[in-house]
Design a protein around this nucleic acid. Structure first.
Lengths: 246, 246
DNA sequence: CCGGGCGATTGATCTCGATCAATGACCCGG
DNA sequence: CCGGGTCATTGATCGAGATCAATCGCCCGG
């Protein structure tokens, strides 16, 4: 299920160090990091961990996309987290996973054994501070998501998801500057439905409706072209200045 | 709108110190805390801050209940946070409020001016660590809430809300030990609807249905008696061992 | 004692999204 | 080139919850 890559001799491709946790850390920490970290790869569709499983590591997404989801006994499932490159997975001090984590694309994670990571957090306040910031950002995202789930119409949900994906992962974008924006959806219709609290049929119908109305253009099933981003934003139901203030 | 209470000469009633942020801090920090903190009271129904307002403080709930909510331009609103005693409000490093904060009961908050609080966080790692733990707990709660909003039926939502309130604030309970549990709902039907992503009519109907089915007994509009807690839990749709592992 | 206001309940009807079902598009291996 | 699998689209129907509206109970002030 997983392959362990060799520990690289520099940290340059590791978001934990460079983008996620310890952006301000000093060089003497670098060596410490290297002794406890490793890489894991997953293929699209693979499960990273099941809810309730022992999780010996915390990790950060290097490339690819993973989802967190919760499932009720009767099979209803709701996605509760979307991990893009540089996002963090796991909780210091908690040995068991709380959610099902699934790779929705091919995925590379940079993992840290949990115990040493916890010790490192105590020794290196910057890491904890960065983790706090990231967690607060995730909480804000979760609350925006709650508004979407509780109060938005199906059409608004779809438009919101498209704009969230476009905003969160510029690396998906296939076009630069202004003019029509193009990107590939990293989620199946079913995954989108689990994200939005809808059925996959409703997702499909609403995407078709947005296409009919000229808000988006489809190229195949997954490639989305947005001729007018402001037009898409109007469909989300959010206020114009959208999002959380800094 | 607010009254400033005198700074007390001990911190004994202040959850920031004793339950929320700095459970492990030493006595020399106590004096520092006292120089920058103060109390504010709000009446039921009052707004604590509006989304987008300047927020010069972070705070912790001493007594009473407050809600965080988001509103769309057309008036649809979704509650995104419920603050019970010892819960924390505000975000270090962010001067503007991201949500509307409202007192739903009479409320006393223990406030810390933001700047000194941020300095204190840098000087006192325990505070940041505690805040991280609390934020992670809030994130877990938000994710459970997302499952509720996205996938549960109206009846399951009501049963879940009742069990969440019962679990989170033992201070509301009017009966001890086992046997029928009794407590007062701290929310109006409308606030419950905003919590659950429903209309107030649906909330009312489902509460009536649970009463008809003997899951709960009503005494007046607000007092709830739960003859059999396990029966209530069955109605929530959650698995038996419910909740997030430690 | 009465009248007004607020929160809650209940009824009648409508609608959006779920459900059930069939078909289509594409990919890959034989 | 065909057959099977996966993912997506589209249609027909149903139903949970929204919406619109009337009534109730209670508190409070005159």
């Amino acid at each position: 299920m997983t392959e362990l890559a060799a520990i690289p001799d520099t940290c340059s491709d590791c978001p934990i160090r460079h983008r996620a946790v310890c952006a301000k850390c000093e060089s003497d920490e670098l060596e410490h990091l290297e002794t406890i970290k490793y890489y894991k790869s997953f293929e699209a569709g693979q499960t990273v961990v099941w809810s309730g499983d022992e999780m010996a590591f915390v990790a950060s997404v290097v490339t690819g996309i993973a989802t967190l989801s919760q499932t009720m006994e009767d099979g209803r499932t709701q996605m509760v987290g979307l991990l893009l490159p540089s996002d963090f997975l796991g909780r210091p001090g908690r040995p068991l996973a709380s959610y099902d984590v699934t790779a929705t694309t091919d995925l590379v994670m940079c993992c840290f054994r949990r115990k040493p990571f916890e010790e490192m957090m105590v020794a290196t306040p910057h890491i904890g501070q960065r983790l706090l910031e990231m967690t607060l950002d995730e909480l804000d995202a979760a609350r925006e998501w709650m508004l979407l789930l509780g109060r938005k119409t199906a059409r608004e949900k779809i438009a919101s998801l498209l704009s969230i994906i476009m905003r969160r992962d510029a690396s998906l974008m296939l076009s630069d500057g202004q003019g029509p924006l193009t990107f590939d959806l990293p989620l199946t219709r079913e995954a989108m439905a689990d994200y939005l609290g809808l059925t996959l049929e409703t997702v499909s119908r609403q995407i078709s409706a947005l296409r009919r109305d000229g808000v988006i253009v489809l190229e195949g099933k997954r490639r989305i072209i947005v001729p007018d981003f402001d037009r898409l934003l109007e469909e989300t139901g959010d206020d114009a200045d959208g999002g959380v203030p800094v």
